[in-house]
Computed example of a mutant assay.
Amino acid sequence: MRIYGPNGTTLGTPSSGTKKTGSSTFSLPDAAPTADARPASAPRATNSIDALLAMQSVEDATERRKKSVQRGRGALDVLDELKISMLAGSITPATVARLKTAAADLKASSGDPGLDSVLSEIELRVEVELAKAARG
């Protein structure tokens, strides 16, 4: 940044060899240390680490929503596998176990009322299919 003016640089003018000396000088007043001065202490590391860990464990609304959507899609995928295995005539115990896991995963709330409504309908369908599988 260039400053043009009485104290700044200007283009094309040679600088003079003499410098002006100001009559005013800057000095700090002599102040005695106050009696309230406390020695510096180290920060409390355990509190800051605990706070950082607590902040990392808190999910924001978008993360909760993403995870809920993934759980819902996973449950729908398992329901599709169940449908295909029912049409083929062979329901495997692994598919029933995956249905139970999907039903347990759908219990968590996403915070979005519309999404929670859809997830509860998926959960109801999974529970109905589990009851049918247990009956048969």
Rank of each mutant, 00 (worst) to 15 (best):
R125S: 13
V69I: 10
L82W: 08
A35W: 04
P33Y: 02
I122N: 08
A35M: 01
A103E: 09
S16P: 01
K66Y: 05
P29T: 11
V58M: 12
A54R: 15
R38G: 03
G22W: 08
R73M: 12
I84R: 15
A103F: 03
A88W: 02
D36M: 04
A42V: 08
E121P: 02
L52K: 09
K66W: 03
A61W: 03
L124P: 00
R38L: 12
L52N: 08
V78R: 06
L53T: 12
D30Y: 02
I91E: 11
K83A: 13
P39R: 03
A51E: 14
L99K: 01
P43R: 04
V126R: 10
L52F: 14
L79K: 09
D80H: 14
S24L: 08
F26P: 02
A45P: 06
A97E: 11
T92K: 15
D116P: 02
G111C: 03
P43F: 00
A88C: 05
P113K: 03
K67L: 08
A75M: 07
L115G: 02
K20R: 15
K100Q: 12
V78I: 13
T101W: 08
A61M: 10
L79V: 07
K100I: 06
G74R: 14
P33L: 03
P29M: 06
R38I: 01
G114L: 04
V96R: 15
P39S: 07
Q70V: 04
E63Y: 02
R98Q: 14
M86I: 13
T62S: 11
T95S: 04
M55V: 02
S109Y: 05
D105A: 14
S15N: 06
